[in-house]
Amino acid sequence: MSTVGPAPVRVICVVFHPGAELEDFATSLKGASTSPIELVLVDNGTDDTVTRAVAEAHGARVLRPGINLGYGGGANAGADDADTPWIVVANSDLVWGPGALDEMIEAADRHPRAGALGPALLNPDGTVYPSARELPSLTQGAGHALFTRVWPGNPWTRAYQQRQQLAGGERTAGWLSGACLLLRREAFEQVGGFDSSYFMFFEDLDLGERLGKAGWENVYVPSARVTHVGGTSWRERPARMISAHHASAAQYLCRRYHRWYQWPVRAVGRLGLKARERVELRAAR
């Protein structure tokens, strides 16, 4: 990766005790763009052996905050001194498709109000993960939360996820998965980056919502394809991840319905989330 002159793209990968997937990420990234790339690895963990080995092999820079900042906080730290027009925030358990990053940058040129752009996220079996979603209404959010496990095809989940296919063109969405995001630095800085109070989960939904309110668009680019191996953190720490997910969901719920007369929504929603968390924790044992 070129380190001569200012790089047009800074790719930020937030890691926590990564494994072999980080090498796959960095290797595949080389074929994702013809532009020079500045790779920054933000290591939230306590053992950076793997991170430093990958950084040395691929000309990346390692940033160690000294504490676990979470996903959004780590991404903000990685973007803090960026002077590139484009910032990419991505999980370490991704394999980039050839030219995927170039596809998103070209799409951004076609959508000058795009603050965030996301690729088609493929599961390892080649199916498409619903990564471009609408902002959830109260009924959609409740229906999705209650029934998605036992009735995946329920109408609330279908409406919320807007299940996309690889066929079809670019479109706007309410928000895009933070597993892989191309961000226009101007837009990212205007809204203050990620809200780091979301330690994990929902920071991408919150960012997409704030970008939309600021007049920017979230654009889904299905011609850019990235495979999300997924689950590397979940497999090792499922209970902690489940609890973190539900804590962030409760935080988002309370912030979105913050008015005094909406307290029944907050109360019922938090009770429902706590009940679902208990069920999922029992199933994860």
Rank of each mutant, 00 (worst) to 15 (best):
S28L: 02
S243D: 12
A60K: 09
L117I: 04
F16A: 10
V54C: 02
G74T: 03
I105M: 11
A77N: 03
Q262L: 13
R266F: 09
Q262K: 14
L135R: 13
P36H: 04
E277W: 09
D43L: 00
L271I: 13
R237L: 10
A142Q: 03
G143M: 03
V226P: 03
R225A: 08
G5R: 06
S92R: 04
E134C: 06
A244P: 00
A159W: 03
L117K: 01
S92H: 11
A145P: 01
A7G: 00
A82E: 08
P238K: 00
G78V: 08
Q190E: 13
A77T: 08
S248G: 15
K30T: 12
I242H: 01
Y160E: 05
A77C: 12
A57R: 15
L41T: 08
G59R: 01
R282P: 00
L176V: 10
I67L: 09
T127K: 00
G115S: 07
T46H: 10
V11P: 05
T127P: 04
G97N: 12
W175E: 02
R285E: 01
G73T: 06
V42N: 04
N44C: 14
R235T: 11
E217W: 01
R149N: 08
S137P: 06
V265C: 04
Y160R: 10
G178L: 02
V229D: 07
T27M: 02
G215W: 01
G73S: 09
W156V: 00
G168Q: 12
H58C: 11
F199P: 07
P155W: 07
V268R: 14
R163C: 05
L41Q: 06
S177V: 00
R256N: 09
R210P: 09
E56Q: 14
R61G: 02
A145D: 14
T172K: 08
P124F: 07
R163F: 10
V4W: 06
F25H: 12
D48P: 13
A250Q: 14
R276D: 14
G74S: 08
A179F: 07
G215N: 05
R110K: 11
G231H: 04
H246V: 02
W263E: 06
A120Q: 03
L94Q: 11
V128W: 05
C180W: 06
E134R: 05
D102I: 08
Q140V: 01
A60P: 08
G5V: 08
N44E: 12
A145T: 13
W263G: 04
R149K: 09
A275K: 05
L166R: 13
